[in-house]
Amino acid sequence: MENNTNIYNTELIPTWCPGCGNFAIHASLKSALSELKIDPSSTYISFDIGCNGNGAGSINAFGFKGLHGRSIPLAIGAHLANRKFTVIADIGDGGCFHEGLDHIVHAIRSNYDITILIHNNMNFALTTGQATATTQQKKAMYGLPDGKPERDLDIINFLLSLSPTFYARGYSGDLKTLVVLMKEGIKHKGCSVIEIIQLCPTYNKELTPMWFAEYSADVATIKEYDNSDIKKVKNFFNNDAKDIIYTGLLSKQDGIPTFYDRLPSREGIKTDLVEEVKQYNVKNLLKDFE
């Protein structure tokens, strides 16, 4: 297969606003898949509802645009049925940290071999700019002229508390790094969470490329930062981290079995579930009822 991102393109033009970070996220995903030589017909993407989901159809792959907050369990079901596929769950910060918060917790804990792309634009954009847990506290939002009253969610410490086997943070303004992180995430055997700080020129005007350049740092630039040591990583973000946006590969733990690999019922079975759908003679099982 050629290294050609065109094969992931479709004729459908996305409806995002000019300058939306989603263009870069999609381009990065196409590059990552292409560089890894993963065919569109071996890729399964579940899309959430929100601006991220409005990109469904504009990337050539098998896919499902389902319900708000549910792209993660949908992707898990698809992955468990056929592990030959590269399965990606695409979701926004609203879907991930509000409507379907339970799923990210249990997906990380279970370590399913999928990649979760969180498009974090810090608001519910498609419904025209309501506050999410990641919107800055006190910022005036739709229906909240006096500002968002609740505290923000500390995503890094929250996700790290779950001991993710792969947790990276990218930025929609830095395609090069994003492609690298996505490739690493897709290759990682286990649940890969890639949170992408996404520019939203319509509802999050404060977050500009210039602001981001000034207030962000890649963990790779920090001396003695060891992303393979989860204890140290947790300790860093609990105690030493500065009030800036950290990006890069925050945590990567290898050798932790995936959910599927822990199932005694699937031990030694070479086929995938989809290949096994046929009549089964229950005669042997019936003996227990005699």
Binding site: S46, G77, A81, F85, V274, E276, V277
Partner: peptide
Amino acid sequence: ITAVQMTMGSMAMGARS
């Protein structure tokens, strides 16, 4: 919700569940 969504995912892929 998770149970039924996972079921949907497996059925979409083609495994009876």
